[in-house]
Design a protein around this nucleic acid. Sequence first.
DNA 1: CTAGTTGCAAAACGTTTGCAAAGGA
DNA 2: TCCTTTGCAAACGTTTTGCAACTAG
Lengths: 157, 157
Amino acid sequence: MEHRIEKIKKQLHSHSYKLTPQREATVRVLLEREDDHLSAEDVYLLVKEKSPEIGLATVYRTLELLSELKIVDKINFGDGVSRYDLRKEGAKHFHHHLVCIECGSVEEIENDLLGEVEQIVENDWGFEVKDHRLTFHGICRQCQKSAVEEDVQKATQ
Amino acid sequence: MEHRIEKIKKQLHSHSYKLTPQREATVRVLLEREDDHLSAEDVYLLVKEKSPEIGLATVYRTLELLSELKIVDKINFGDGVSRYDLRKEGAKHFHHHLVCIECGSVEEIENDLLGEVEQIVENDWGFEVKDHRLTFHGICRQCQKSAVEEDVQKATQ
DNA sequence: CTAGTTGCAAAACGTTTGCAAAGGA
DNA sequence: TCCTTTGCAAACGTTTTGCAACTAG
């Protein structure tokens, strides 16, 4: 935790940005909720719990900054809000997401599924791949189970 | 062209929607600019050229409707606007995009690159895949060439 | 000290909605 | 006829910006 804050501090300094208390508080929230996909508003509310003086604009500016420095990834699942996701240490590529169209849950996949596919794109289309976004839309394990249970219930009524 | 309009007319009718002149004009723009990735505003301005009375809200409502009927795909490259893309005939899966981070151009890929990857997701994560979005960010062929030319120019100065 | 940063409020942006009028089936 | 659809303008929710005050390095 602390060493990741230190590292981010250095990254900021190397671009002559400062690690202000507001920025640190924001980063801490992102670290604590690393597995979630928080919107700016979500982050704002969580930061506000511990640092009530912070403004929403500052959170937006901090997230934008972290995004530029590639410390966080800004993602968009098409629901009208941007979400922010701390990059895992040493992750050279963006991870993938499984978005459930029933319950809206988002699961992360870390595996590099696209190595081969990227090669095809580079070779066949002459496109120099720098990053990718892959999202699957479908039905999560939990909702599949619920659907089966509902069917059983219906059948035994 | 005409037969695709007819087909869309039937799809609308089968859900008891009408093919109004405004909707037809919108669809015609999408057909004419099939390879582009137009925003609602883009579509609006293009439709307005031939049907100046149309309102922006109508374009939004039409695009939303076509999206529900899966006649168009609504996509989001993370720049704050939704883009709308006519589905190719018989395309069962969403196509992929190559977005150039230099010039902003968007190229489409039709190949089904993800069959194997989808199998992995279904088997290893128990996630029932319904659709996917795959976007590569990188440098297009044209911009790679430009970069090389600039280097040559610099070297021979 | 001073360039970078903040909070606030207002503005901007893309998108949606309420409503009365218009128009297709 | 009836019910869908339209254009307009106002409302909406998210994000950005201008500015004077403040502060980390």
